[in-house]
Amino acid sequence: MECSFALTGKDYVIVAADTTAARSIVKMKIDEDKIKELSPHLLMAYSGEPGDTVNFAEYIERNIRLHHIRHLVPLSPSASAAWIRRALAQSLRSRNPYSVNLLLGGYDTAEDKPKLFWIDYLGTLSEVPFAAHGYGSYFALSLFDRYHNPEGTVEEGLATLKRCIDQVSKRLVVAPGKYKVKIVDKDGVREVEI
């Protein structure tokens, strides 16, 4: 089942999501990228109802791209989060709402700070030091409570993430096999192997 994690460190945010695309009890694909790069300093991991997720993520991606083309100043992570939250909240009150959960990790180039937001399909938005969605969150959050260091290095952050993934693999019946991990910092977005 779908799992996504994210955590902040001293000057970066790590975002991780499993790569399985499943339908019912069948895995259809095991190398699906569920983390979109919305802008040079913004990552969004999405999970939820298949179809809704990709549709909504592309809608967000293109609107944020449009904003960048139209305006001289890029949208900050917190402004993007507020806008995305509103899009979900409006969708929730429509005839067919999107059921999509998001983790939004970005680097605020104006403030020189990493930012992480937890957003769910009900339009809840909160800024957090670490976050998780899916069944993995039941294991990951307690590990983050114990091991997360907001001033940690990238290596330390990746080690904490590794703990979460290992624990989920060990204890969760429907644990996903593979994860994609991306890091965003002042230099932009990069993908790392874990």
């Binding site: 305006h71 001289l72 100043v73 949208l75 900050s76 917190s78 402004a79 507020a82 806008w83 509103r86």
Partner: peptide
């Protein structure tokens, strides 16, 4: 209301 931040100066001028 939309972005939960003060409008950037040049944006309002625009």
């Amino acid at each position: 209301l939309s972005y939960d931040e003060d409008i950037p100066v040049e944006l309002l001028v625009q």
